[in-house]
Design a protein around this nucleic acid. Structure first.
Lengths: 347, 347
DNA sequence: CTGAAAGCGCTTACAG
DNA sequence: CTGAAAGCGCTTACAG
């Protein structure tokens, strides 16, 4: 099973020391003379020794392994989170293994995640935005430290790191208002994650604060997919008084909306402005380049790794404390898909 | 470390049998009476027992773990491969852990992959299209079975499963020729993986077979990115005699080319037809929907799992045999981005 | 069909 | 600072 059968015993023999000493030298545990340490390290290197993770784990040693379970590998946001976590873990000297708890493979089960990741890893990072309360409750009683990433759906006592949705959303809508728009539509996502609601709340509050009366027909149901955004936009454009700006709860829907606008021969942003959410890679490549909101994904990765490390090393200041979720600020990324409201131009 | 401290001993006690018997009952190994087995299984369930993977592995047991190392998590093709492998692994009763050997984290090292995956998994699947010969050579001498997915770059003795590039590419170009095109441009990808070359070979052979003289200026260097495709297309369109069709070595570049065409006010496919490669999710959402070539990604996942299972269980018919790579046929996905060549329409 | 013993490779007390 | 012993949780021969 293991790559080569070089064991710690071989290293010890080669270095002319006892097994224990070799272990200590390699792990930097306990007292070893510098000379001995050098001999052992040299021997290990010469033999191409790499420790047997299983044995290490079994003995309660630090395998230096972090687990990451994700519910979706097709999402650009989740993939960026994975990249960020990978980098942060590497910088912290941790190896990362990823478990695909995709809903395509059936509902993510704590049992599965724990069977695979729980026995191997020192800590587990969870990117399961759709997870239900029950699933999380199981993790709460787990003995392996767990940190939640980008989770909003339910209340939970698990430590959480997430990007802001509300303020970013407000900023987007305020940007439109600043451009003179008042007929601003919102395309919602599906309600499974709680993120769409947060974004909608930001939309509503921004309107309210600007003294703009909310128009019910300007809020249309979407589902986070491009075709959903396309259809939602068609619905909006079929209305007698069409909006001058469309804010979609994510980029995919914003792009769908752009398609719908183009199909009608409407100019973006000349006739209608469009804003998305996520700053997906594609958002910078569509024409016109999409104005959108970006979550601080690398910060999220870093903070999540920092948090889990605290729990693992037991140096958490508030042990067992129900700290409030860490919420990192999103930023508005202004590109080319928004312009002055047509009325404002005429006025 | 482990989720709960229920061990096999607890189960055995609860069931009123010896430790060994419990082990056998749960693993289906050796002889156990039906009655005993039921008792043990019930006890295990009641206690919420889940075996300690480390101990299992250490004893040479079957952890039922498969490893998958990937070089890039931003690629839609690789993500579809991950999904396919996840599904195939699950169906085979295997758990899958993924290791991010992304080039962003430094060059993928066999040492890293093996340290993490090698000690834990029964077999390793590699999606490392950019891997150099040296890296692969290290895996060849590894004692853990390894299977390569979608690898072309170099010769290797490692068992390989991959999607066809050449024939799919030919089919795409023949489709264009069938529509009356003869000024067909090709935008290459970067040369790091060997895939672009394969696709170019298909392009050239299709032209040759149709008796169309290759025009050097119609082959332009790209880099697999959308902006690369955009620039390559601009180059093509700046030529005195512009192509009537553009075949890009992947979808991202094809979309970039579409952007360039739109910017020039050219109709797709009225003025210029466009074909991509990959059938990325976005290709079905751009306007017009992109005609492209699709690799049989789920077949690839299934075959790769089948192959690695053969190696693991040692039931490989040609043990140690240097079987030729398994190459699965790609298919042309015809959508809306190709039409009759303008000349043909006029003629 | 069932059980007692040995040992996978390592680390953590416990002695020198 | 170094070493001999015990044991993590399991499975695989070896006896009954």
């Amino acid at each position: 099973m293991s790559k080569n059968s070089v064991t710690l015993i071989d290293v010890a023999k080669q270095a002319g020391v006892a097994l224990v000493t070799a272990s200590r030298a390699l792990n930097g545990t306990g007292f070893v003379s510098d000379e001995t340490r050098k001999k052992v390290v040299a021997a290990a290197k010469a033999l191409g020794y790499s420790p047997n993770l299983s044995a290490k784990i079994l003995k309660g040693g630090r395998p230096n392994l972090l687990g990451l379970a994700v519910s979706n590998l097709q999402s650009s946001v989740i993939n960026e989170i994975i990249s960020a976590v990978s980098l942060a873990a590497k910088q912290a000297g941790l190896d990362l293994i990823i478990y695909n708890a995709s809903t395509e493979l059936g509902a993510p089960k704590q049992q599965d995640i724990n069977r695979v990741l729980g026995g191997l890893c020192e800590g587990i990072l969870l990117v399961l935005p759709t997870a239900q309360e029950g699933l999380l409750a199981e993790f709460e009683s787990s003995s392996v430290p767990v940190v939640l990433i980008n989770y909003w759906r339910n209340e939970t006592r698990l430590p959480t790191v997430r990007g802001d949705n509300y303020e970013g959303s407000r900023a987007a809508v305020e940007h439109l208002i600043g451009l003179g728009h008042s007929r601003i539509a919102f395309i919602t996502g599906s309600s499974y994650t709680g993120q769409s609601q947060e974004r909608q709340r930001g939309y509503q509050d921004a309107l309210k604060q600007a003294g703009i009366r909310p128009v019910k027909s300007l809020v249309v149901q979407g589902d986070f997919t491009q075709s959903g955004g396309f259809e939602a936009a068609q619905q909006l454009l079929a209305q007698p008084k069409r909006p001058t700006a469309i804010f979609a709860a994510n980029d995919a829907m914003a792009m769908g909306a752009m398609d719908a606008l183009k199909e009608r021969g409407l100019q973006i942003p000349g006739d209608v402005s469009v804003v998305g959410f996520d700053d997906s890679p594609a958002s910078n490549h569509v024409y016109p380049r999409l104005t959108t909101v970006r979550q601080p994904l690398s910060d999220i990765g870093e903070q999540a790794v920092r948090l889990i490390l605290q729990r693992i090393r037991g140096s958490s200041p508030a042990e067992g404390g129900d700290d409030a979720p860490i919420e990192l600020p999103s930023t508005l990324v202004i590109r080319d898909s928004c312009g002055p409201a047509p009325e404002a131009v005429l006025g």
